[in-house]
Design a protein around this nucleic acid. Structure first.
Lengths: 327, 327
DNA sequence: CTGAAAGCGCTTACAG
DNA sequence: CTGAAAGCGCTTACAG
């Protein structure tokens, strides 16, 4: 019922090999190529990609495993990855782990079964540590998060510097009791926390960091608890855009005006952070660059498997807005 | 180099047929099944999905083609679709058309080449009109948008009723010069517009609708122009969440206080709409339900190909907030 | 329940 | 440049 390459060959009066070559980049005379193209149009032939992948042993597929697709940061990175992939004639399989190690293992297994060419992956800390180089059949580029040095290529933000910039700014504005709520699952949140603590130390201030799941609900709960305590912080730093939203919610619930009673700063320059009044001070990540660099690292790795491992560190941009004004 | 089913068979001392049956749901004795499972563990065997799909002629794959992945509405629907799909043992290929007819055609062709089991699709109006039933090799369920009656199963919002609810509310609040900016590419935006116009008529008011691309930038420009005119509307309805954001931006730029100088209402209850002060009045769509219903329609269609075409119409929920308060 | 064999729809050495 | 033939890695009638 479905039309196959044999039907096209018959219609064009050539062999299936010639049809295959005409559709690919094989050497075919112009005359036969035109006959084949006409036959393809006449029959409505569409190649079967499963067959092509099986036979050619090339899936032209890259896997993209992100930690939370609800996080616009990952949506934006995905778009950049997909643009670069399609430009190179590759498709991408997008998977979402919800920061869950089991689902990470599941999707990594799926990638093997799909025989992907390579994977771009934002792993949890646990998985990043456990994942040894060479244990998978394809190269892996870590994104947003890194693992043990030298294990995998990666592209990450200069997290410590970004956190420090936020602390420096808050201190310059006159804040001293600056708290931080950081995600509990990623190396990146750890680095942001370390950067925060180091910067606080440099200013002779006492760091006060807490951790929770890197989503809006958990951050709202955590920030809500903290802000209801005596000696609550007068400024709060959150380690991603979802958590920042949770903190805004918590402040609203407690009727704490921003920045009157609480200064707020965090990561990811999502459109809504500018829409609030006052806007939120954030670190903007070069999302398109992150995705493009990841694909580029992956292609380089495919070309030169034995090349030394590379880590690309990109700088964030500090976007100052009203939420951190002097009280 | 890569371990195949033959290696497992050899290691387990059985035929490849038995390995295949043990991994699938074929009839195998418990003893052999255990031998096979041990051999799979020992060899680290992972089935090749391309081969499996080719041979079994069942890809267990559904295609999900959305119009704009930056729109959180589609992200949310995607999650629901994926949950339902994975529960049924199917994977999903997610594609993003950016409301572009050429990319729609491209992805539809890709779906044919992938030999997908079925497709869930949010088409532009142009494509919805052109897409005749039965012209594709797989069933299609339309989502968020519908086409000519009777062509494809679909699940949509009761768009006209939702728009009317917004108009009724604004009129009740005392607004009369109520304008609307609606997306130019989808049947859904058309229906929202029609619902708006009908409701205005019912109230004896003059409708004033404009159209633009259904994204933030275009809506910001369109609303900005309109709001700078003499006789500008005192209330504005936008046909999706992205456009609503654009309108907020435009009002900010023109220093028009909401709702003091401009009342604002629209579609999609995105988290940020509640965070603004005042919050935005919106129609909340049952996103999870939309995704789940689409999968359900698709499965039913696969089971009963000749069943009459069904259209599931879901109701929105009106969320009243400060942006439409009496001026 | 089990195995030998055919074949899914392609691509690609191998000859010519 | 072109074709006949082999084979990618599986699954599934067909026998037994």
């Amino acid at each position: 019922m479905s039309v196959g390459i044999r039907d096209v060959a018959r219609a064009a009066g050539v062999s299936t090999a010639t049809v295959s070559r005409a559709l690919g980049r094989g050497p075919v005379s112009d005359a036969l190529r035109e006959q084949v193209e006409a036959a393809v149009r006449a029959t409505g032939y569409r190649p079967n990609l499963s067959a092509r992948r099986l036979r050619s042993q090339a899936t032209q597929t890259i896997g993209l495993i992100v930690a939370d697709i609800r996080n616009p940061f990952f949506t934006a990175v995905s778009r950049a990855v997909e643009d670069a992939a399609y430009q190179a004639g590759m498709r991408v399989i997008l998977c979402n782990t919800d920061e869950d190690a089991e689902r990470e293992a599941l999707y990594l297994r799926l990638m093997q079964e799909e025989r992907v060419t390579g994977v771009i992956f934002a792993p949890t800390r646990a998985t990043a540590q456990a994942m040894r180089a060479g244990s998978l059949d394809f190269p892996v580029v870590l994104i947003d998060r890194s693992g043990p040095p030298g294990a995998h290529d990666s592209v990450v933000l200069d997290n410590a510097a970004a956190s420090a910039a936020l602390v420096d700014h808050l201190v310059a504005q006159g804040y001293a009791r600056i708290g931080g709520v950081f995600g509990s699952t990623s190396s990146t949140a750890q680095e942001r926390r370390a950067g925060y603590e180091a910067a606080m130390g440099r200013h002779g201030l006492e760091p006060a960091a807490r951790a929770c799941a890197p989503n809006a609900l958990a951050a709202e709960a955590e920030a809500g608890r903290w802000l209801a305590e005596d000696g609550r912080p007068e400024a709060l730093i959150l380690s991603n855009g979802l958590m920042l939203m949770g903190a805004v919610r918590a402040a609203r619930t407690l009727a704490l005006p921003i920045p009157g009673a609480l200064a707020l700063a965090g990561f990811d320059n999502e459109p809504w952070t500018e829409l609030l009044d006052p806007g939120l001070t954030v670190i903007e990540q070069p999302v398109a660059e992150i995705g493009a660099q990841a694909m580029s690292l992956l292609f380089d790795r495919l070309k030169s498997p034995d090349q030394p491992v590379r880590k690309v560190v990109l700088s964030g941009r500090t976007v100052l807005r009203g939420s951190t004004r002097k009280p």
